[in-house]
Amino acid sequence: MPRKARLNLVVPLGVGVVMVGASALALAGGGGAPAGAEIRNVAGQTVGSLQVEDAGTGKSKITVNVTNLPAGYHGFHVHAKGVCDPTSIDPVSGTPFFSAGGHFDVGGHSHDHHTGDLPNLLVGADGTGTASSVTDRFRVAQLFDADGSSIMIHALADNFANIPDRYRNAAGEKGPDAETKKAGDSGARIACGVITKN
């Protein structure tokens, strides 16, 4: 009996973007089984879900669905630790979910080249949003290092450290300041989900 060929198509949805980074081609690790997260706000209410799966050829597909969030663009990143404690407060900025650490990164990149940097998440006036993107910056298996990883939604849009030279930082130098280089001025952490294997 002849075998049927199977074709997998990846179609970006919503504001999805295919992200490509040359340095990501050097990342080690295999694809891995699907992973996901239940995303909760500071009050512990579920506001969304995340799915991460192998997209083939060393890429991962990220799909997110959210509800009951403020309208507009939100910074959306994989963070370095799999701990989403809303009572863990950043002593400098006062933002919750400090327990999740900084952006997930393999190789010491700066923002917007962190391994976990993803396109902004657009939420509509009704508080809902859906997005899908494909990245070659990480593979599913890499999300499960010794301390795990989490997905984070921020209060503001991520500017991806895209600050023209006409702007000055606190020291009077041209270009982005330290905060912009760290997280793209995406503001407070408003929702977080620990990434687990499905």
Rank of each mutant, 00 (worst) to 15 (best):
D85P: 02
K61P: 07
I62R: 07
A55H: 00
V64A: 10
A55T: 01
L69I: 11
D54V: 08
K81P: 03
G82K: 03
H79S: 00
V64T: 12
V92H: 09
V92T: 11
G58Q: 08
V64F: 03
D54N: 12
H79V: 00
G75F: 12
G72Y: 14
K59Y: 08
S60E: 02
V52H: 00
L69R: 08
H79P: 04
D85S: 00
G58L: 05
Y73M: 13
G72W: 00
H74L: 13
V92N: 09
L69A: 10
H77Y: 10
G58R: 05
N65C: 05
K81L: 07
V92W: 00
E53D: 10
P70S: 14
A71N: 08
H74W: 06
D85H: 06
D90Q: 09
A80G: 01
G58A: 03
A55I: 05
V78C: 01
P91T: 08
T67A: 15
I62Q: 05
Y73N: 14
T57K: 12
S49F: 06
P70W: 13
F76Y: 11
H74T: 06
G82C: 08
T63V: 14
D54T: 04
D90E: 12
I62P: 02
F76I: 13
T67K: 15
V52R: 10
E53H: 08
P70V: 10
A55L: 04
G82A: 07
D90M: 02
I89N: 06
K59N: 15
C84F: 06
L50K: 07
G72M: 14
S60G: 04
D85F: 03
A71Y: 09
P86E: 09
T57A: 14
L50D: 03
S60D: 06
N68C: 11
P70Q: 13
I62G: 05
N68H: 12
F76M: 10
K81Y: 14
L50A: 12
Y73V: 04
V78I: 15
E53V: 06
F76R: 00
S60Q: 07
D90A: 10
A55E: 02
N68K: 14
I89P: 03
A80Y: 08
Y73G: 14
A55V: 11
Y73L: 15
I89K: 06
K59T: 15
T57C: 02
K81S: 05
A80N: 00
T57V: 11
P91D: 01
V66E: 07
C84K: 04
T87D: 13
A55K: 00
G75P: 07
A71S: 15
V83K: 10
G82H: 13
V66C: 04
I62H: 10
Q51I: 06
G56Q: 07
Q51S: 14
G56V: 08
H77V: 07
Y73Q: 15
F76K: 07
D54W: 02
T63Y: 02
A80H: 02
L69P: 03
